[in-house]
Simulated scan of single mutants.
Amino acid sequence: MKNVLNQIISLGIGAAVASKEQIEKVMNDLVAKGELSKSESKEMIDNLIEKGESVRKDLDDLVKEKVQQTLKEMNFVTMDEFRELQIKVAQLEKKNE
């Protein structure tokens, strides 16, 4: 049982980067060895995939936030700011014609 828990913990840690197929393979191996039932395996697969997707989303959000912060610190303009400047330049050009 301790071995099963260690495998599940390792699987949980790697769930954020593991594919569904990899998770299913490990769980199927545990079922084949009789260490888990099929229903326990299905439940754990669903939970690990859900947690992995949640971690992936959180990581994506963090990366986006850090990129935006870095761009701001480097004084880069956003696309919205650039479009506003394009509109202002076009208005000034039209005004000066």
Rank of each mutant, 00 (worst) to 15 (best):
F76E: 01
S19E: 05
K66N: 12
S37E: 15
E24F: 10
E81V: 06
M27Y: 05
E21K: 09
L11H: 03
Q7A: 10
V26T: 07
S41T: 01
K51P: 06
E43Q: 00
E53M: 13
E43H: 02
V17M: 12
K33V: 02
R56G: 08
T78G: 09
S19L: 00
K64I: 15
D46E: 03
N75M: 02
K94N: 13
V17H: 09
K20D: 10
K95V: 05
I49K: 08
E97S: 11
R56N: 11
S10Y: 11
K94L: 04
M44Q: 01
S19D: 08
E81S: 03
E73S: 03
S19P: 07
Q68W: 01
G34S: 02
E43R: 04
E93I: 13
E97G: 11
R56F: 12
N6G: 14
N75R: 02
Q91E: 13
N47T: 02
D61C: 02
G14L: 07
K2A: 14
K20F: 05
S37K: 06
L11Q: 01
K25Q: 12
L71I: 07
N3G: 08
E81G: 07
I23Y: 00
E24Q: 14
Q7H: 14
V63L: 06
S54H: 05
V67P: 10
G52I: 07
L59N: 15
N47H: 03
E93A: 13
D29V: 13
L85P: 00
K64W: 02
Q91M: 06
L11M: 09
E73D: 06
D80E: 13
E93D: 14
I23M: 03
N96G: 12
K25F: 08
G34W: 01
V67M: 09
K33A: 03
E21T: 03
I23K: 01
E53T: 08
N6R: 12
N3C: 15
Q7K: 14
I45L: 10
E97A: 12
E65D: 06
D58M: 07
L36R: 00
A32T: 15
K42R: 01
E65G: 05
Q22G: 00
Q22A: 12
V55M: 13
Q86L: 01
T78E: 00
K25E: 08
V26D: 00
L71N: 04
A15N: 00
K95N: 11
I49C: 09
K66R: 11
E50V: 07
N6E: 09
I49R: 00
E65L: 10
V77A: 10
V67K: 12
K57T: 08
E40H: 03
I23G: 00
R56E: 04
Q69G: 11
F82K: 10
V67S: 10
A16K: 11
M27C: 09
D46K: 02
